[in-house]
Design a protein around this nucleic acid. Structure first.
Length: 531
RNA sequence: GGGGCGGUAGCUCAGCUGGUUAGAGCACUGGACUCAUAAUCCAUCGGUCACGGGUUCAAGUCCCGUCCGCCCUACCA
């Protein structure tokens, strides 16, 4: 434990009735890397993910399948969403489902608090409701229907007719929070990140806020409004609360105080819910706003936003089945600037796998371990006086480790990996230049050989520690092959902020042969195989 | 309609407050080497910085306009 500073990070909770695609996977993986990094740094880390199971859409799809919504949700969570976490090797600390009792209890307490303090009132609402969006639409959001819906007004997103609904329900006085929200964005410029997201949020809030209808009485699949059993809580309001309810809001004040406030990582399409509505809800309840709301970009496939309807949706296991979970994690976090949209292509994935993971990192590990085994029977030799070149490697590692930690602090995950990768590149060059295989032929250069291989091995040690949050499967194999555990303990316990220090791997560590960390993939990868 | 973002080598992208011959990775080509996953290392090749004006001693970098892509948001009918 270094600092023990709290770090509570969340993914959005997903609709179980969606089919998991690489966009979901991207968010999960990004949050997992942040969490693993902080955890390994000794921060008091907690990673939350989960599913959002209420709402009319779930009710209807369940009914269509002849099931209760809860049965339907159970099935989807078991068959799709928990397996997704396995597929991607996610080390979440908790998984919340909005149908869990702990959530319902805390959510009701939150709602009651808002009601007691006068932030909720009764009103009538009439509007065009889109079941697909789970929300009312303004007339401007509707377009003329085509085909079977010709002559009707349809939702611009789902192209399906909207329903004219009128209901008496409860409203949250969000309009009262405009000034306080703007003050929040002003006082804490890093509250909404990146900058482009912040600007959009500010522009939106400056345009004025409407009160929010937060209950429904036309169906009953949801959390009951505590003072009016005829109403259930609007699904988005319910969903946002998960971040607080999961860590004990109104149930376990000690736990809540320990974890809160959270860092929310979200796709930019749901930024507004997290950067406007959610902080307003918290302010109304007298709870501190989140620490950060970070909006990442979209994955583009063929230059367009990935979408299932355009058949560009890709299931995460299509990638992991061929390349493995490490490659998935590495690729999306390295190739895409976190916070910006990024292009996905099988060609790029395949090329980076080959060039960076297999030929770069994997082969580096392979050649170093092989030489320690060949020239020293696997026993890590004692280094002699460092030369200029050796010191250069040490410097590279120190600089890279510091830069990577600083980048993670700014959510620049791609930069962090790029910084770490300078060690891979320098080490490969170092080995080629130092020519240990030549040194090995002459007994007179034995000590120099020892120094070179020690330097390379300790560099691998630093890489294993620094890359463990990103590619934990590969680094675990490397840790074993280096024989590091005997002297240093478990890889996950290695303090990541000290990874750039030198002469850490104990002399005499017993290396063992290393299988290829990222074997060459001979098979042709099919791009069109969207299942 | 208003606002925002983007358009830089074949591909994916860096280029902060304007300043010597515009960078990186991958791909391509040539060479070196053999410890290693036919891998590594070095070098070369490659761009009218969307287009047209303007400001400046100097613009990819600022200003105006045009075109293209995307996002947010409004409104008429």
């Amino acid at each position: 434990m270094v600092s023990g500073a709290p770090f509570y990070v969340t993914t959005p909770i997903f609709y179980p009735s969606d089919v998991p695609h690489i966009g979901h996977g991207y968010t999960e993986v990004a949050v997992d890397v942040l969490a693993r990094w902080h955890r390994q740094a000794g921060d008091d880390t907690w990673m939350l993910t989960g599913t959002d199971e209420h709402g009319q859409k779930m009710l209807r799809t369940a009914a269509a399948g002849g099931m209760t919504p809860k049965e339907w949700a159970d099935r989807l969570v078991e068959s799709s969403w928990l397996p997704l976490l396995d597929t991607l090797n996610i080390a979440n600390d908790d998984f919340i489902r909005t149908t869990q009792e702990r959530h319902e209890v805390s959510a009701q307490a939150f709602l009651q608090k808002l009601h007691d303090t006068g932030y909720i009132y009764t009103g009538d609402y009439e509007g065009f409701y889109c079941v697909g969006c789970e929300e009312y639409k303004q007339p401007s959001e509707l377009v003329e229907g085509t085909g079977p819906f010709e002559g009707q007004q349809v939702c611009a997103i789902h192209s399906r007719p909207v329903e004219l609904l009128q209901e008496r329900n409860y409203f949250f006085k969000m309009s009262e929070f405009q000034d306080r929200l703007l003050a929040l964005y002003e006082e804490r410029p890093d509250f909404v990140q990146p900058e482009s997201a912040r600007n959009e949020v500010i522009a939106f809030v400056k345009g004025g806020l409407d009160d929010l209808s937060i209950s429904r009485s036309t169906f009953d699949w949801g959390i009951q409004v505590p003072w009016d059993p005829e109403h259930v809580v609007y699904v988005w309001f319910d969903a946002l609360l998960n971040y607080a309810t999961a860590v004990g809001y109104a149930r376990d004040e000690e736990e809540f105080a320990r974890r809160w406030p959270a860092v929310h990582i979200v796709g930019k399409d749901i930024l507004r819910f997290h950067a406007v509505i959610w902080p307003a809800m918290l302010m109304a309840a007298g709870v501190e706003p989140p620490k950060h709301v970070y909006a990442h970009g979209w994955l583009l496939v063929g230059g367009e936003k990935m979408s299932k309807s355009k058949l560009t949706g890709i299931a995460p296991n299509q990638i992991t089945d061929v390349f493995g979970s490490d490659a998935f994690r590495y690729y999306f976090l390295r190739a895409i600037s976190f916070g910006q949209d990024g292009s996905f292509s099988w060609e790029d994935l395949s090329a980076r796998y080959q060039a960076e993971l297999a030929n770069g990192f994997g082969n580096l590990a392979s050649r170093v371990i092989a030489m320690i085994n060949r020239y020293f029977d696997g026993v890590l030799p004692q280094p002699g006086e460092p030369s200029e070149a050796d010191l250069g490697i040490q410097q590279t590692a120190a600089t890279a480790a510091a830069a990577a930690d600083a980048a993670i602090e700014r959510f620049a995950i791609h930069e962090a990996i790029g910084a770490i990768w300078t060690i891979v590149e320098e080490l490969n060059g170092y080995i080629t230049t130092q020519e240990p295989w030549v040194l090995a032929k002459d007994p007179a250069t034995r000590e120099r050989l020892q120094t070179v291989l020690y330097t390379a091995a300790d560099g691998l040690r630093a890489l294993a520690v620094l890359l463990n949050p990103v590619i934990p499967t590969a680094t675990a194999k490397l840790w074993t092959a280096l024989g590091a555990e005997a002297g240093l303990g478990a890889l996950a316990d290695q303090p990541i902020r000290e990874a750039g220090e030198w002469n850490v791997l104990p002399v005499g560590s017993q290396a063992t042969p290393l299988e290829a960390l990222f074997p060459r993939i001979e098979q042709e990868v099919g791009g069109g195989a969207a299942a």
